[in-house]
């Protein structure tokens, strides 16, 4: 069953990504989104492919992964309820650098990135909020990736 716009706004209201957005801003954002169901193994973004969509996870989990020799397929991050999946839509060339795959069944609000960029350009207050949230999210993911690069747990501690 397709949820009504009111249902979608209610869903978005409960998401951390949409915290403190006004009713008008939520409605503007909801107009760019659709509640979708995903099944395990569904590939939502492909490495090197266009990043025309992004998702706010309602339930379930999505893997961010990369593949290629010599390591084969490597899962770089796993995103859960409340996380935003897909970040390459914020800046040109709007191309995904990773695969995004559903770990199991779940639901997400899928946003049309072009529509969101258009809404942000038309309403600078909304645009400022959305891009600030994306900047925070990118900062947090950069920090997390740097910690992973440090190989924190491989130290010499003998205990």
């Amino acid at each position: 069953m397709t949820p009504s716009p009111t249902d979608l706004i209610a869903e978005l209201k409960s998401q951390p990504f949409c915290r403190d957005l006004s009713d008008t801003e939520l409605a503007e954002l909801a107009a760019c989104g659709t509640l979708v169901e995903v099944a395990g193994g569904d590939q939502l973004l492909t490495l090197g492919g266009p990043c025309d969509w992004f998702w706010v996870i309602v339930d379930g989990a999505l893997d961010v992964s990369m593949h290629g020799p010599p390591v084969g397929m490597t899962i770089i991050g796993r995103l859960h309820t409340g996380d935003v999946a897909g970040v390459s839509w914020v800046a040109e060339p709007f191309r995904s650098e990773f695969d995004l795959t559903a770990v199991g069944p779940g639901h997400a609000v899928r946003f049309d990135a072009r529509e969101v960029r258009r809404a942000c350009a038309a309403d600078p207050a909304l645009g400022n909020k959305i891009y600030q949230r994306m900047a925070t999210l990118l900062r947090d993911r950069l920090h997390a990736t740097r910690l992973q690069l440090l190989d924190l747990y491989g130290g010499s501690r003998a205990l």
Binding site: D63, T74, I75, I76, G77, R78, A144, L147, D151, Y153
Partner: peptide, 17 residues
């Protein structure tokens, strides 16, 4: 874990997540 396999059911990333 920092490096997951496709059978891993937990989180991927630093423990702070």
């Amino acid at each position: 874990v920092d490096h997951a396999t496709d059978t891993w059911k937990g989180g991927v990333g630093p423990v702070t997540i």
